[in-house]
Amino acid sequence: MGRGDFRGAVAVAAVMAVATVLVAAAYDLPVRDPDGVSIPTWVRLPAIVLLAVALDVVPRWVAATRRDQDGAWQALRGVVRERWNRDQVRFTVIGLAAWYVSYVAFRNLKGYLPFVTERLWDTELASADRLLWLGHDPADVLHQVLGTGWAAWLMSGVYVLWIGLVPAMLAIALVWTRRSRTGELYVTAVSFNWLIGVAVYYLVPSLGPIYSAPRDFAGLPDTFNTGVQDLLLDDRVTVLAGAWDTRAVQTIAAFASLHVAITVTTCLVAELIRLPRWIRVTAWTFAVLTSLSTVYLGWHFFVDVVAGAAVGVVAVVLGARVTGHPLRRRDQPWSRPALVREDAQQAAD
Rank of each mutant, 00 (worst) to 15 (best):
P167R: 03
A348W: 08
D343M: 09
D222F: 02
D28W: 05
P34Y: 13
F286H: 06
V10M: 13
W153A: 02
G2W: 15
A261V: 05
R321K: 15
A24N: 01
S180E: 04
V204T: 11
R336V: 15
A287L: 12
D137I: 07
T246L: 14
T41W: 15
D28L: 03
A152W: 04
L232F: 14
W278G: 00
F286W: 12
D245L: 09
T290A: 14
Q345Y: 11
C267D: 13
A52G: 05
N225H: 11
L51V: 13
V21P: 06
V260A: 07
S191N: 09
D87E: 15
D129F: 03
M16A: 08
A13C: 04
G183M: 14
L22I: 11
P221M: 07
A128K: 03
L327Q: 10
L318A: 14
R90N: 08
V288W: 06
P167H: 04
V295E: 07
R107Y: 05
T65K: 07
R329C: 05
T226C: 08
L268Y: 05
I273T: 02
D129N: 04
A14V: 13
V322N: 09
A75E: 04
D122F: 00
T65M: 10
T226D: 11
D87H: 07
E342I: 04
D68C: 07
A287E: 01
W284Q: 10
S212I: 01
A17T: 09
V204K: 10
A307D: 06
V288K: 04
A151R: 03
L275K: 12
L289T: 11
V228G: 01
P167M: 05
Q332S: 14
R341H: 08
L131G: 00
H325I: 10
M1G: 10
L318C: 10
A139D: 05
